[in-house]
Every structure is written in structure tokens, then in C-alpha cells.
Design a protein around this nucleic acid. Structure first.
Lengths: 133, 133, 133, 133
DNA sequence: GTGGTCTAGACCACG
DNA sequence: GTGGTCTAGACCACT
């Protein structure tokens, strides 16, 4: 439950998004399940040596998305799994991610079938990256 | 050579990246080949109704990447095709893009096979974004 | 388009939520329509005499909700209307709001039919509160 | 008199407010009448597995409002019913609650008549939240 | 000029 | 102790 991970401060991806990403992944892969408590804002901030506000922002966005919920005075906990977005919105988000992916890979000269193959191959690796402690 | 395409003002993707993307894709798919001239900065800026600086930036980055080259006084031309990135670099970029894609889609609750199917389905649409003139 | 409104700093409702509320209402009632630009963060911050970060936070949340979209370097604009939440999530939010309403009115000793009548009567007033300039 | 109810730990509504709400409702609906004794702070705290301070706070606020009264050494009892708020105050509170409700539901795209219908439908459910023992 | 990120540090509400 | 809000001020990316 201690959420072992690092962030890369210089990256174009903002720190709070990196934090969100790690936690989302833990939830998506089942490393964190409903009712689990996230580390306190100050603790995680210290561990990552970032400002508490930055962690708080990540928690706030995850809360807004409904992935976690905050119980005042007690901490932030993984929320029961729900379907938050409409079919339409999920399609929109999928398309946005897909196009971004195409944009970032189009000039790598990898043919589409090969790309898809690689993507399928990368998935278990991604899934496993999150250490189940 | 007149580069028919639109940019999406509402997108979070910066305009200069959208322009770069379109040109990269034209080159990747063979719509633009070695020696073809790109439209002058001012012309393209007018056509897209964006700031000339924005177009200039896109051209500059493509030049830096070696995809196009500027012949002073005459314009910007598609460069001879060569292997720009090392195998290692291409793998690195592919992985980064793939992980970002996973991060953005993991919590959409779309199973992997379905995701792959959708991705393959989205490609022609993406490709068509830039009509080959 | 100048968004005439005040905020009450002492209120239990946080300032950024008050700002969000006003803008949501303007959009809900049609005072702000797709494509309209919101006042710049700094301008609105000055007008309300709050910190720019506070306004930025309100804008960020509205952006996350999909009600507005930010075009980098140019400003924040009202987004095309979309159905963002699933039926389930909308029900959940409606129920939460309804129960909160009941909690806040239960001890006012107003019988339910009377309450409903009053609520219907209050709506046009609410709707009109947002000045169409 | 044993006050059968649960609190929802995941809710954004603070626990002490949930407790207050339940008791207010019991009084409003006649489940608790003048002279009835509330369970001792420690007992209720144990039953709900919350901090005794939290229960104490709820009792304190209800006492301050005049809904219950504490007879030192013997416990807390439901106070004689009286008009607690002036007509004006009741209108003010109703309006505040109504506007908050509108704010939270305006962007759910539910037409007013449908909203009223749903609200009426939700009431019995809300009422039942506290089973009359 | 626009918005977005991050830090530092204060203050409050809840338990 | 927990998270949440707000301010002040710096720095960056994009147009």
C-alpha cells in the first residue's frame, strides 16, 4: 500500500499527471482495490520530494473522476468501481488517445499491422509494471 | 502541393504540433516526396488563419528533425528520405507512446482485444484526416 | 460577455466553486454559448479581487468537465455541448443533490407538496438571475 | 429510542452532519417526540463506530438550535416543539437550498418537470433512510 | 498577451 | 493527524 514509484521532474508530462497515472494504473490493474487508503498527501509529497499541493491536485482530480473518494479528516480511499462517463464520452476519449498515439508513431515508419502487434505485445508488460506488493 | 488540411482550434494539441503532424503524415504516406516544396509560411498561415510564427515554428522543428530542408531564398523542401532515428530510439519512442495510450485508456473499461479492434478501425479515419490531393 | 458577478469570500462555499457555479449557470441558461470566450484568468481575478490561481482552478475544473475548453495561448472558450456523464452517474449526482436538498429543508416544516410547488416557483427566478447582457 | 441508522463513510457530507440530519428527520416526522431521550454519546458512538467527539458535536449543534436539550447528569432529550425560525429565515434557508440544488443539477440536462417528478419520487426513499423503529 | 505548473507557506474543518 | 482552500509569486509554453 506504500505506493512505490518515482516521478521524473523534467518531463513534459506534469508531475501531478504522473502521480495520477500511477494511481490509475494501480487501480486499473487491481493493485489497489475498493476501500484501500492512499498514502496521506504530506507523506507522498515527502517521498516524491514535491510540494504537497502537487499531490493534493492529483488526488483532487482523481476524486473528481470518481476513482477515489475523500473522507474528511480520515484520508483518501479507493472508491467503488462505477461507470462514470457516457458511451459517447468514452468514445471521444478513446479517439483522442488513439490519434495522439498515431501522431506520435506515424513518422516511425512502422506499418500498421506491425504496430498493432507490438501494441498487443506491450500490454502485459505495462500491466506487470505496477508491482503488486 | 497545396497541403489541403484543417487544424482543430479546440484541441489541447498545440497548433504547431498539428501542422507538424499533418506534414509528417504526408511524408510518411508518400503524399509528399523528396524535392516537393512546402507552401510558403505566409501562404499556409493565411490558409489556416493562424499566426505566421506558428507555421514558422512547425517548419523549424521539421527542419531540425531532418524531414525537410530550407533552401535560403527559395523555400522549404522535403528532404531526401533517410533513417532518422536509430532502432533503439524508435523503440523508445514507440514504448513511450504506447504507455501513454494505455494510461489514457486503462480506465475506460475497454478490453484489450476490443481496444485493438477499435484502434485498427480508427486508423483509416486518421489517415484520411489529410486528404491526398 | 464580461461576466458581471460577485463572490462572497466568507461563504462556506469555496470561491472557486462560486465561480464555477456562475459560469455553469450562464452556460445552462444560454447566456454563454458555444465558442464564447471567458474573460482571461488575470482579468477575472482582478475584477473579483481574488488570486489568479483561484480563477485558474475554476477554469481547470470546468475544462475537466468538458463544459469549456482551453486553446493554449488564446484563452478559454465555451465547448460544444456534449453528454459527458453516463445515465448512472447522472442519477447518482441527481440523488446526491436531492438528498442534500432534503437534508437542508427537512426541519423547515414545509410539507412535500408545498416544497415542490415552491421549487417550481423558484426556478424561473433562478433562471433569470443570470443577466443576459 | 434506539435510533436505528447508518452513516455513509464515503460521503462528502461530514459525519456529524449526517447524524444531525437523521435526528432532525426523526423529529420532523414525529418518530421522536418531546421528552424522548437520545442515546448517550458513548453508546451511539459505539453503535456507529465513530469518534465520540463526532456524536458530541452533533448533539451540541442540535442543542444550540433548540431541537433538543441537555439535562445535566441525565442525558439529552427532545425539546418541546416550537417555531424555531422566523418566516423570513425559513424562506431564506429554503431559497439557499433550492439554488444549491439547481446549481448542482442544472448541467445534468434534466428538464424541470422531469426533475420535479424525480424529486417527488425520491422523497419516500429519503424518508425511509431512517426506519421508524 | 494567453493559460498551465509548481513552490512555499498560511489557515481552516473534521476526527 | 487528515484533506481542502487560498494567497503570493516564479517560471514556462503557446500565439
Amino acid at each position: 500500500m506504500s505506493l512505490q514509484f518515482d516521478i521524473t521532474p523534467g518531463s513534459p508530462e506534469p508531475i501531478y499527471e504522473q502521480i495520477e497515472g500511477h494511481i490509475r494504473r494501480q487501480i486499473a490493474t487491481g493493485s489497489l482495490v475498493e476501500g484501500d487508503q492512499l498514502p496521506p498527501v504530506r507523506t507522498l509529497a515527502e517521498q516524491l520530494t514535491v510540494n504537497p499541493n502537487t499531490v493534493a491536485r492529483a488526488y483532487a482530480e482523481l476524486t473528481a473522476e470518481g476513482l477515489v473518494e475523500s473522507r474528511t479528516g480520515r484520508g483518501v480511499f479507493v472508491a467503488p468501481r462505477r461507470q462514470i462517463f457516457s458511451e459517447e464520452e468514452r468514445n471521444r476519449r478513446f479517439h483522442r488517445a488513439a490519434w495522439r498515439f498515431f501522431d506520435e508513431t506515424a513518422f516511425l515508419d512502422i506499418p500498421v499491422p506491425e504496430m498493432v502487434r507490438r501494441l498487443e505485445a506491450a500490454w502485459p508488460d505495462y500491466f506487470r509494471k505496477t508491482p503488486t506488493p
